[in-house]
């Protein structure tokens, strides 16, 4: 049950606006982003629903969603949004908040992969695919999968 109250309902959207510059309250829930999202068919949440979670201050749902981590930043959503909201940017900000506040998604492997990826770029300036694959498989305890 979501208990709504006046004082807090706009909290998360204000924070997202401060961090990303994007005003999620402008989202009219049309669903166009979700319709074009390249990874949405495989996810339990769709981008427009994540936007709704932000609008209603549902921080837990937004930050524990695997959608946020599976987002490939393909920018299809951003290109198509009729309100001009950079949804991919918002997803990125959510990822930042997750890392900063210690949230991990249910599919932990996605989070691990992202951290390895970013770590590799920080260290080498680019992604060393073979190294990434090996490290990922070791962390996932599946050394021989492809």
């Amino acid at each position: 049950m979501l208990k709504l109250d006046a004082e807090h309902v706009h909290n998360l959207s204000k924070r997202i606006r401060d961090l990303s510059g994007e005003d999620v309250t402008h989202c009219i829930q049309c669903g166009k982003c979700s319709g074009g999202c390249t990874v949405a068919p495989d996810m339990e949440e769709i981008p427009s629903r994540i936007m709704r979670f932000i609008q209603l201050n549902m921080k837990e749902r937004a930050l524990t969603s695997s959608m946020v981590w599976t987002c490939t930043s393909c920018l299809t959503c951003t290109a198509r949004c009729p309100e001009g909201i950079d949804i991919a940017k918002v997803m990125n900000v959510l990822r930042m908040m997750c890392t900063a506040e210690g949230y991990t998604p249910k599919e932990k492997q996605i989070h691990v992969f992202n951290r390895l990826f970013i770590g590799m770029i920080q260290k080498y300036g680019h992604v060393y695919e073979l190294g990434l694959m090996v490290k990922n498989n070791m962390m996932a305890m599946t050394p021989f999968s492809c």
């Binding site: 049950m1 979501l2 208990k3 709504l4 109250d5 829930q29 427009s48 629903r49 709704r52 979670f53 209603l56 549902m58 749902r61």
Partner: peptide, 10 residues
């Protein structure tokens, strides 16, 4: 709120 998929109490 069907958009969030949640029952709501106010």
């Amino acid at each position: 709120d069907t958009l969030a998929g949640e029952a709501v109490e106010i």
